[in-house]
């Protein structure tokens, strides 16, 4: 039972929950980035943040320093993160190519200009 959270953070080990909070924050930032940026590249940066948030989660769930109960994700967490990083890179490459294609056709990288298809 502690009431001063800050003091705890300095003297007590942090747990998975703290990592999850960080990742939740980053996830929200990323999603909001995607929802508010008008620049396509800004949107892509939002995607990177979102995927990064999930990586943080996976690392935290598998870390022996944060939890040592039987339910730990163990090595799976790190392995999955590796693939997430690679897949994120692949996705970024394609999305960027598509963005450039959009730019070539529209002379703009404003996602709000992508409004011909509707209804």
């Amino acid at each position: 039972m502690q009431n001063l959270i800050l003091a705890n953070l300095l003297t007590e080990p942090i747990g998975v929950a703290h990592y999850v909070v960080v990742s939740a924050f980053m996830f929200t930032c990323g999603v909001l980035c995607m929802a508010t940026k008008r620049n396509v590249l800004g949107v892509l940066m939002g995607v990177e943040l979102v995927l990064n948030a999930a990586s943080i989660n996976l690392i935290a769930f598998g870390s022996p320093f944060l939890r040592n109960d039987a339910n730990s994700l163990g090595l799976d967490g790190q392995l999955m993160t590796l693939f997430v990083i690679v897949l994120a890179a692949a996705e970024a490459a394609v999305a960027l190519a598509i963005a450039l294609n959009f730019y070539n056709n529209h002379d703009s990288i404003d996602v709000d200009r992508a409004d011909e298809l509707l209804g």
Binding site: V40, I98, A99, N101, F102, N104, N105, H106, V111, A114, E116, L117
Partner: peptide, 8 residues
């Protein structure tokens, strides 16, 4: 144009 928009 539309194709690139759809892809995006």
């Amino acid at each position: 144009r539309r194709s690139s928009e759809a892809a995006l």
